[in-house]
Amino acid sequence: MPTTRVRISGGEAVVEYDRTGTGPGLVLVHGTGATREQWLPLTEAVADRFTVVAPDYSGSGGTIDHGGPLTLADLADEVLAAADHAGLGTFHLVGHSLGAAIATHLAGSHPARVRSLVLHAGWAYTDSRMRAEFTYWLDLLRADAEHGTSLFARMLPLMAFGPRYWDHTDTAAYEELVRALATALAPGTDRQTAVDLAVDLRPLLASVTAPTLVLASAHDRVIGAAQQQQLLAGISHSRYAEIDAGHGAPAEDPAGFVARIAGFLAEQQPDEGPMADRAAPAPA
């Protein structure tokens, strides 16, 4: 897999990413505790039309860094570094959860680089209720590290999934999911959750100029409706859509999630011929 080096606030990071497909650039930013593999269904759906770049940011996958505290700006710099190394001058940008916060920061800090923006389960700032939620996550993660438990993985489906999952599962399936999550969680989930605690994008929202889809989940137990409205009010060229799922819509309803994002991207990318706005060749 390609890698690139970038300076962040605590030192240096070596960012690993996937580069797939051909066409205009599309950068995908995963959520807390996940990796770039979260985006495989969307990548498969659009790689015939886009050059898809999916990085792991610090704490996840193959990306390596100093191991200390992180900031939202650090993670945005890592994502931009992957886009630069992959040869993308401008690009469409999609983020889920913390990835949506990272994408918003990038789009507000470098508006000329971002052609369109999709924010699923994003938020404008971490309010008191969200602060309590993320602090509880950190408590569970610390307890798991100390005692070898799976409390965070056991909580995740309760927090992330809506009726689509719970109406069609049973105890055995839930326990199997907990075991899978316990082994799949990124090792830096606690460091990423600390970034969740510090999100405040309100000073940057007016600087986002790209056409933006604010994609909410109807049964999101983490991000409230008021946060989505703040994004809509703060980003001038934004519109709203909703998916019938919980916060973890990419896993709960992958087909519906992909369809909504792919549809928006198709609107942003007019048919200008097979060689329109191609990304630069892949780095050696």
Rank of each mutant, 00 (worst) to 15 (best):
Q227T: 07
I102K: 06
L93N: 09
E252Q: 09
S60K: 08
L201P: 10
I8G: 08
G67V: 11
E146S: 15
V214N: 07
P274I: 01
Q268V: 11
T171E: 10
D196T: 10
A255T: 15
S207G: 07
A194I: 02
L98V: 10
A107D: 03
P187R: 03
G224F: 06
Y17L: 11
T193K: 09
T20N: 12
T193M: 08
H30K: 12
A82V: 04
D190V: 01
Q229L: 13
T135H: 07
T35W: 06
R191H: 14
S58K: 09
A107V: 04
P163K: 12
P24G: 03
L117N: 05
P270D: 05
Q228F: 12
H247Y: 12
A34L: 15
L197W: 09
Y240D: 04
D170F: 09
P250I: 11
H237V: 03
P203V: 08
D220Q: 11
Q227W: 12
A132P: 01
F264P: 04
L98D: 11
A180T: 09
L213D: 09
G256Y: 13
V208P: 01
A216M: 06
P250M: 14
L215G: 12
A145H: 04
A216V: 14
A101C: 14
V14H: 08
S60L: 06
T126D: 04
V52D: 04
R5N: 14
A255C: 08
L181D: 04
V118W: 06
T71A: 11
T104V: 15
V46C: 14
F161N: 01
Y125E: 14
A132M: 07
I64Q: 13
D144I: 03
A34D: 15
L117K: 05
V29I: 15
Q227M: 09
P203G: 11
H105I: 00
A259H: 11
I243S: 07
A103W: 13
A173V: 02
A233S: 06
F50E: 00
L70Q: 11
H247K: 15
T71D: 08
I223E: 07
T183P: 02
L72K: 06
T43Q: 04
Q192V: 07
